[in-house]
Design a protein around this nucleic acid. Structure first.
Length: 560
RNA sequence: UGGGGCGUAGCCAAGCGGUAAGGCACGGGACUUUGACUCCCGCAGUCGUAGGUUCGAAUCCUGCCGCCCCAGCCA
């Protein structure tokens, strides 16, 4: 059945292509199992979102959009020991930044605690749940192992009235943490460990970021999640593969209660892994705590906040999420695909500018001392509408240190003694002399002559030279801090991913004067270098800090 | 040795009984005042493996192998 693509061009649409989940939904709609589609993104507010979550966000919101349905943002905040308001705020910011809109449907599991409690009472009354006085240790011992069945708790067959009384007293705060739990009464011999009378409520005398001190018992995920979904009339509860084993329990809770006429179905997909980084909250936390990165929003982090600070766009991340696909294979996606998405977008609309990362002074000996010419540069040759600007040119310039070699290999299309090269939208120059530090041998400056007939636009400019260099006029240059990044993890000689101690390089470079006053968060393509974004935390209009988002691709292979 | 999943190219991923899409990466070439972009070309004689069913199998069946997940009062 063709459900049609969303016709209103909401910017929040992830343009999701088909996948096995959509096939299931198509069938549901066809068979009338559901009349509409309602999904949710249900983060636990216990950490920052990363690009793996972005995949899930795009899937859930994108699926809803595809079927003209709705997607809720719901915090699954059933464990106050780990959750904080700080995280709910960052998650809201990140989902919004990615471009998704949950309208007025911002929900919290905690807001359903009263209902969940009532439902638990119902289960007890049906004889489907019981209060267990065993310690965590004892429960574990009786649970059995993967190959041996568990054993019933001695409290398993306690009378309903007693269970009711005990559960009410658990809620009333009469018992210490860990002294009692409420368990679902299912089957201690089930081959599925999750069905061996799972704990559904525990005692925790902890304040909750939303409910304060109202509760000292909190529901467990397996019990709470299906209820959250059912209460919100979710149709398709999409989660990751590790919950596949929990599906029978998800269904058990809803079935036993029997009060939801059209309960949701849980569908699992493989979470995203990326090369050259780590993705678990735990591992990311270690990087932060060990000071390997500055914070969760360090531009090297795969967190949404890190990617944002690095300069990644929401569009490129959504595009990436769409391209990696949705399936059940555990997969590790090459980070080159993410980079490709960013380049593809920014190639289309990033302003081109000239910035010299590693400056080397170049003097044009036959150019008049005080002369300044303004060279016209296209803002973006991919987009004629972007117009042009004038960039000052003078006798003394900075070029990239890498663009000069005293003793170049073959096919070095740049500057070398006696060789000619084009300065972007200016003149052809020829290297006449290399000035070095007598003591160290370091190259201090390059002295060149220029051919006045070869100015861009003049007939003499037709002459071809193999290389074109970017440049910045010394007296007009704006100093800037430029940060280059490498992957946080790189492959060692055995093919293992290892932490990369050299993942950041900070340079003092120069950029063309048009960049004066640039606001934080602005993106550019630095000619021949890559895409850069002014750091949203540290860049100031009069003290620019650029983060390299990704370098330009290069087919230049030294030595070939 | 229990249960639940998954095996299609270097990495993702379509495919749903009629003869292996697409993307990324990679290699070659054209173009180029960005070694970028763009454009061309190449890149799985076979789908983990062995059998079986069929006129026909990546698709159905059986066995085997490999990998992932489950024994939290985490989610």
């Amino acid at each position: 059945m063709d459900t049609g693509n969303k016709t209103n061009n909401s910017k929040t649409e992830a343009n999701i292509s088909g996948n096995f989940i959509h096939d299931i939904i198509d069938r549901h709609l066809e068979e009338g199992v559901y009349k509409k589609v309602h999904t949710r993104f249900p983060p636990e507010p216990n950490g920052y979102l990363h690009i793996g979550h972005a995949k899930s966000i795009c899937l859930n919101f994108g699926t809803a959009a595809k079927y003209n349905g709705l997607c809720n943002l719901r915090f699954d905040d059933t464990n106050p020991a780990k959750e904080e308001l700080e995280y709910v705020e960052s998650i809201i910011e990140d989902v919004k930044w990615l471009g998704f809109d949950w309208e007025d449907r911002l929900y919290f599991a905690a807001d359903y605690f009263d209902k969940m409690y009532e439902y638990a009472i119902m289960l007890i009354e049906k004889g489907k749940a019981y209060v267990d006085d065993l310690s965590a240790e004892e429960i574990r011992k009786l649970r059995g192992t993967l190959t041996e069945p568990g054993k019933n708790s001695p409290y398993r067959d306690r009378p309903i009235e007693e269970n009711l009384d005990l559960f009410r007293r658990m809620k009333a705060g009469e018992f210490e943490d860990g002294t009692r739990v409420l368990r679902a009464k299912i089957d201690m011999a089930s081959p599925n460990m999750n069905m061996r009378d799972p704990v559904i409520y525990r005692i925790a005398h902890l304040p909750h970021h939303r409910t304060g001190d109202k509760w000292c018992i909190y529901p467990m995920y397996d019990y709470a999640h299906p209820l959250e979904d059912a209460i919100e009339n979710i149709t398709h509860s999409i989660c990751t593969l590790e919950f596949e084993d929990h599906r029978p329990l998800y269904e058990w809770v809803l079935d036993e209660l029997g009060i939801f006429p059209n309960p949701p179905v849980q569908i699992e997909f493989a979470r995203l892994e990326l090369t050259n980084t780590v993705m678990s909250k735990r591992k990311l936390r270690v990087l932060v705590e060990e000071g390997k990165v500055s914070d969760w929003d360090d531009p090297r982090m795969p967190t949404i906040s890190g990617l944002r600070r690095r300069g990644y766009t929401p569009t490129s991340i959504r595009d990436f999420a769409d391209r990696v696909g949705v399936a059940k294979n555990n997969s590790v996606v090459d980070i080159a695909l993410l980079e490709h998405c960013l380049r593809e977008e920014l190639n289309k609309d990033a302003q081109r500018v000239m910035g010299v990362l590693n400056p080397l002074k170049l003097v044009i000996t036959n150019y008049p001392d005080d002369k300044v010419e303004y060279m016209e540069l296209e803002n973006n040759q991919e987009d004629p509408e972007a117009g042009t600007r004038d960039v000052p040119f003078s006798k003394e310039l900075y070029i990239e240190r890498e663009d000069f070699m005293e003793d170049p290999p073959r096919k070095f299309f740049r500057l070398a003694p006696g060789k000619e090269v084009r300065l972007k939208n200016a003149y052809i120059i020829k290297c006449e002399e290399v000035v070095k530090d007598e003591a160290t041998g370091d190259i201090l400056e390059i002295r060149c002559s220029y051919d006045p007939e070869t100015r861009s636009g003049l007939p003499g400019a037709k002459r071809r030279v193999k290389g074109t260099l970017h440049w910045v006029s010394v007296k007009h240059a704006i100093p800037a801090t430029i940060r280059l990044y490498d992957y946080l993890f790189v492959e060692d000689e055995n093919g293992e991913m290892q932490y990369n101690p050299d993942s950041i390089k900070e340079l003092k470079g120069y950029v063309e004067p048009s960049l004066k006053g640039t606001e934080a968060g602005s993106r550019f393509q630095f000619f021949r270098q890559g895409y850069f974004c002014t750091d949203i935390v540290e860049s100031k209009p009069d003290d620019l800090v650029f983060n390299q988002i990704v370098p330009l691709k290069s087919s230049y292979k030294p030595g070939k």
